Simulated scan of single mutants.
Amino acid sequence: MKTMTDNFMISFLQRFDEHPFDVKIHGKTHHIGNGNPTFVVDLKEDIEGKELLTSTSLALGEAYMKGNLEVEGDLFEALDSFLGQMDRFSTDRSKLKKLMFTSQSKKNQEKEVTSHYDIGNDFYSLWLDETMSYSCGYFKHETDTLYEAQCNKVERILEKLCLKKDMTLLDIGCGWGYLLIRAAKEYGVKGLGITLSHEQQKEFEERIEKEGLTGQIEVARMDYRELEKSGRQFDRVVSVGMLEHVGRANYELFVKNVDSVLKPGGLLLLHYISALKEYQGDPWIKKYIFPGGMVPSLREIIHLFGDYRFYTLDVESLRRHYYKTLRCWEQNFSGHRQEVEEKMGTEFARMWELYLSSCAATFHNGIIDLHQILVSKGVNNELPMTRWY
C-alpha cells in the first residue's frame, strides 16, 4: 500500500521538474528534475492522491501547516522554484465550489474581513513596521528600510492625488490610519477612513486623539456599499489593498459607490493586488488566510472605469516592490516566530510563514502583480501634464 502511495506521489511531483529537488518518503530519497537538488521535501506522512488532485495547494499547504511536510533548505527558495509552476497544480473547482465561491453579502464579507484583520493588533505589530502599513511599500533606494519604504509609498500616493489644504479625502479600507494621518498633517486635508475591522478602528481612533487630529479626520466602521446613501462628497478617494475583498460580482458596485461620493473632477487612486487574467484564486489562501479573497485582473477594472466616465491618468506596477516588502515581513516574522508560536500555536505560526513566503514567491514569479491606478471623474484639465511624482 505504501509503495502504491509513494509511486503516485513521485509520479505526481514529476510534473514540477523545472527546478531539481529531492523528495524523502518512508526513508527513501527520490530525485525530481535534472541536476543537483536545490531543496529537499521530507514527507513525514502520506498525502492522499485524491487530495492532491482535488487541490494541490490545499493538500501541500495543510501538510506543511501540520508538520507532515518539511522543507530542508530555504523555504522561500523552495517555494520560488515550485510556485513558478502553479499552472501544473490540480484544482477541482466543482468539489471546491463552497470554498471558491463564497457569499458576497455584507454580513458574510464583514465576517471574512474581520477573520483576518481582527487577529489582533499585537500580532501585526510584531512584524509590520512602525506605521502599521499592511500593504506594498515603495523602495526608492536599494538600502531603504521597510519603514522608509512604507513612508515612501504613502508619500507617492499623496503626491499622485494632488492634495491641497482643506480638501476632503476618503480612504476606503483605511487600515490603522497612517495614510490619512499623514495627509491631514502634511496637506491640511479633512478625511474619513472606513474599515470593517474592530481592531483597526480602535487603533486608528487612538492615533487620531494622540496626533491631535480630532475633528479633522475620523474613522468609521462602514461597508463601501453604504457610501452611496451616506450623502457625503469628497475631493479625493483612495483605496489601498481593499479591492481584493470586494469579489468579482461586486467590482462595478464598488466603482458605482465611489462615483456617488466623488466630486466632478475629483481623483481616485486604487492600489490593489492584480493579475494578468481573471481567475478564482488559490484554495489554500481562501481557506486559511483571506476567506472570500479575489485578485482582480488589471483589464477588468480598467474596463469598468469607462462606463462611469472615469479617465485613466496613470497605471503603475509595483510588483517587485511587493516582493521586497514581503521578504521584509518574512524576516520580521521569523525574528518573532517564537512569540507567535507561544501565543497562537505552532500550526498558526507555520501557516503564516508559509503564507508570507509563498506570496513573496508568487510576486517574484509574476503570478500576481500590484497596480496603482489613478483616474479622474470626468475631465480634469487642472492637473500637471507630466508624471510629476
Rank of each mutant, 00 (worst) to 15 (best):
L96C: 09
G84W: 01
Q85R: 01
H116E: 08
Q104K: 14
T91M: 15
L96V: 05
V113L: 05
H116G: 05
S90L: 03
D87G: 10
L99V: 05
F89L: 08
V113C: 04
R93A: 06
R88S: 08
Q104C: 04
D92K: 03
M100L: 15
K95H: 07
D87F: 01
K98T: 12
Y124S: 09
S105M: 10
M100V: 03
K107C: 02
N108G: 00
I119F: 07
S105I: 09
Q109D: 12
G84S: 12
V113M: 07
T102G: 04
G84I: 01
R88H: 07
H116D: 07
K106V: 13
D92Q: 04
N121K: 12
K97C: 06
S103L: 11
V113F: 04
E112Q: 15
K97D: 14
F89Y: 12
V113I: 15
M100I: 12
L96I: 08
K97Q: 14
D118I: 09
R88I: 02
I119T: 12
S105E: 10
D118Y: 08
S103A: 15
T114V: 13
R88G: 01
D87S: 09
T114H: 01
D122E: 15
F101A: 06
G120W: 11
F101V: 07
K107G: 04
G84E: 03
F89M: 09
G120R: 12
D118K: 08
K107Q: 14
Y124M: 12
M86I: 06
T114I: 13
K107N: 09
N108K: 13
S115L: 07
S90V: 00
G84L: 01
Q85C: 02
S94M: 11
Q85V: 01
S115Y: 05
F89R: 05
K106D: 14
Q85I: 02
K106H: 11
N121E: 13
E110G: 08
F101G: 00
N121I: 06
M100Q: 06
F89T: 05
N121M: 07
F123G: 08
S90E: 10
K107T: 13
S90N: 10
N108R: 11
Q85S: 02
I119S: 05
S125V: 03
Q85F: 01
Y124P: 02
F89C: 07
S103T: 09
Q85K: 01
M100R: 02
T102P: 10
Q104N: 15
F89S: 06
M100H: 02
Q109G: 00
R88W: 00
N121D: 15
K95L: 14
E112M: 13
G84K: 08
K107R: 12
T114R: 14
